[in-house]
Design a protein around this nucleic acid. Structure first.
Length: 481
RNA sequence: CGGGACGUAGCGCAGCUUGGUAGCGCACUUCCUUGGGGUGGAAGGGGUCAUGGGUUCAAAUCCCAUCGUUCCGACCA
């Protein structure tokens, strides 16, 4: 391969964070905005979010969730009603104190999350058990005044969806909390080709005001964890604080059970990190804005090339493939590098030799494998190939995840796994030791308990660190983004 | 929020030490050439040197401050 003349990306192995930033900028997913800490979503970046949104919006509507929109500004007094929430979010709130030239009687907070606004509204619309359940969601942006920001992974403003639902009973609420977590997991398995670890957060990592927080955690290339989506069982804490009451079947007043759930544009960060390589972005076909690019070879000297390429383009479009024919006068080599950088899953080459042989050449982005397909029937074989790529990418990521969840039998092994970036340290823990363990791993290894996976099959009976008998919990510890 | 690096054309950089009114590569425009891994050539267009102040006859260059980006930590989705 010749030296990269147009753009170059820091190798992934040399400096992962620099590599990540390079890919975000050079694959034209985002640009930095003049407003500090904020980014501009460029078309190729926003398209990824739209894919996720389109997919997920259909899914939640099928579950009876309806979309709403609430104000982006929250009066300070309203936010303060739930003590844990304000304690958790106050340090990162943006506050507006003036309207026009006039000092506001009460400061307004730009929403960091909307539990308070939803609750304030819910108390007006919920009166009886007949009004339940309420299943609302909103697509919006939220603002959190972060000290340090990274494109997609942590920004002062990010796009997300926040689901807010009320139920008559605890069981229904808990069940839907987990339903949504499974939906999040499917965004990974069905769309982004990212395998997640599903499970519960230990209490120290729970959402401010939640009784239980469930998470999907992704494995980053450096073995660190990325919390990629959360679903919270909030119990009655909020509904009591905000005085939401309904008359039950027993004629008595009760507070409904509340849950909230969210995924954000952080998923784009996960997508970039999990699949990207030294050549740039690698996209799974189902989210890729362009699924296949056709590169004509020697199109000027052989007029037949462009003719065949155009036929192929319209054939594939008709078959529902998001295809792009690059008939610009750039050289093929330039085009190859360009679309690799942008992560296009499949490159199709059409040249005189191919036409003579009755085939097209193709290269899969994710594993660089090259082959040919007969030129007949491409409207069938290309979509099948794209699905094969999707599945291949998921398998590759799943293998990586499994190889980097490492059972640890003593503290030395935990230390080795964490400090050498090998992945998640899978530990057996006696619940009574959990708090102490957290403190120890936090201070000594900078690792936190990421998740208590739903798969709680024990791999030994003794506590990984203390060696005591009676270890009852499987926990993954890791460094986190 | 601490520590380091950086800010000069769309991108990547040189120029700064030793002040004298801005340059290179890529990208862009036109033409030719080439075309199966970033072709080669010719002619062009594009910059109040991050911002503000100071020193000076004169500042990209020296001094002070501010802002921004980035990397490494701490903190948080």
């Amino acid at each position: 391969m010749s030296s990269k003349k147009v753009t170059s990306i820091t190798p992934k192995s040399e400096n992962l964070t620099q590599w990540y930033t390079d890919v975000c900028v050079k694959a034209e997913l985002m640009d930095y905005a003049t407003t500090k800490g904020f980014i501009i979503y460029r078309p190729d970046g926003y398209a990824l979010w739209e894919s996720i949104k389109d997919y997920f919006d259909k899914r939640i509507k099928a579950l009876g969730v309806r979309n709403v929109y609430l104000p982006s500004l929250i009066p300070m007094s309203l936010l303060k009603k739930e003590a844990d929430l304000i304690a958790g979010f106050a340090p990162e709130c943006a506050v507006i104190t003036k309207g026009g030239n006039k000092e506001l009687a009460e400061p307004m907070v730009v929403r960091p999350t909307s539990e308070t606004m939803f609750c304030d509204h819910f108390k007006n619309i919920v009166h009886s058990y007949n009004d339940l359940p309420v299943k609302y969601n909103q697509w919006c942006s939220v603002v959190r005044w972060e000290k340090t920001t990274r494109p997609f992974l942590r920004g002062a403003e990010f796009l997300w969806q926040e689901g807010h639902c009320l139920f008559e009973t605890e069981n229904e609420a808990r069940e839907f909390t987990l339903t949504m977590l499974r939906e999040y997991n499917m965004i990974g398995s069905e769309l982004l080709a990212i395998p997640f670890v599903m499970g519960a957060k230990p209490s120290s990592e729970k959402f401010a005001g939640a009784e239980d927080t469930y998470t999907i955690e992704a494995m980053m290339p450096d073995g660190q964890a990325l919390q990629s989506g959360t679903s919270h069982y909030l119990g009655q804490g909020f509904t009591k604080a905000y005085d939401i009451k309904f008359q039950g079947r027993d004629n008595k007043l009760d507070n409904p059970y509340y849950i909230s759930w969210g995924v954000s544009t952080r998923l784009l960060g996960a997508l970039i990190m999990v699949h990207g390589d030294d050549e740039g972005l690698v996209l799974p076909p189902r989210v890729a804005p362009t699924q296949a690019v056709i590169v004509p070879i020697r199109m000027d000297s052989d007029p037949n090339v462009l003719k065949v390429a155009r036929e192929l383009e319209s054939q594939l479009k008709e078959a529902g493939v998001r295809v792009y024919l690059d008939d610009s006068n750039k050289t093929p080599g330039w085009k190859f590098a360009q679309y690799e950088m942008k992560g296009v899953p499949l490159r199709i080459e059409v040249g005189p030799k191919d036409i003579a042989n009755g085939v097209v050449s193709f290269t899969k982005r994710y594993d660089s494998s090259k082959s040919t397909l007969p030129i007949e029937n491409l409207a069938k074989t290309i979509p099948a190939l794209l699905e094969e790529i999707q599945a291949g990418m998921y398998q590759k990521a799943l293998t990586f995840l499994n190889e980097h969840i490492i059972e640890c039998h003593n503290y030395e092994e935990v230390k080795e796994v964490i400090t050498s970036g090998k992945g998640f340290a899978k530990m057996m823990v006696c619940s009574k030791n959990e708090a102490e363990l957290e403190t120890k791993l936090k201070s000594e290894l900078n690792a936190t308990p990421r998740v208590m996976p739903f798969d709680q099959r024990p791999f030994q009976s003794t506590d990984t660190v203390t060696g005591e008998e009676g270890a009852d919990t499987v926990i993954y510890f890791a460094r986190a983004y």
